[in-house]
Amino acid sequence: MPSQAKPECTCGDTTAAAGGKRRIIFPCAGQANTGQLTNLAAIQLTEEGYGNIACVALLATGSEGLVANALKADEVVILDGCPMLCAKKIAEAQDIPVDQHIVVTGLGLEKGSSRDYTDDDIETVVSAVWEGEGRI
């Protein structure tokens, strides 16, 4: 009896070949709780196969390789912790178009002096990105 091909799960596959999009994620990774949350969320999004985290500090230096990678991506996702919008400004300074922009304080999470966070806080940011809440 001929065997039937099994369906393939696209988890972990971020390539366009899988019907998904090649995304690059820049978290602001700022020192405040909300900035740190962007980093944790970007790591989780990478692990879930949404896209690939990249270093916004390196982008700020004008790294030619990273700018080229960002320009090659199907979507650029920026995660800012607060309304200072540092990561978005860095991307704009390198003429990188932004497809989705999330500001953590805009999701009801408060910027404060404590760096305490919960798994729910990370989930709030991660699910907002999957939902496309910051799509431009």
């Binding site: 369906p7 393939e8 799960c9 696209t10 899988a18 019907g19 999009k21």
Partner: peptide, 19 residues
Amino acid sequence: VMLTPALAVDGEMKISGRV
């Protein structure tokens, strides 16, 4: 369905292999 996740609406396949 060859690629998951997939979505069908009223029996018609709309999305396959992505969220």
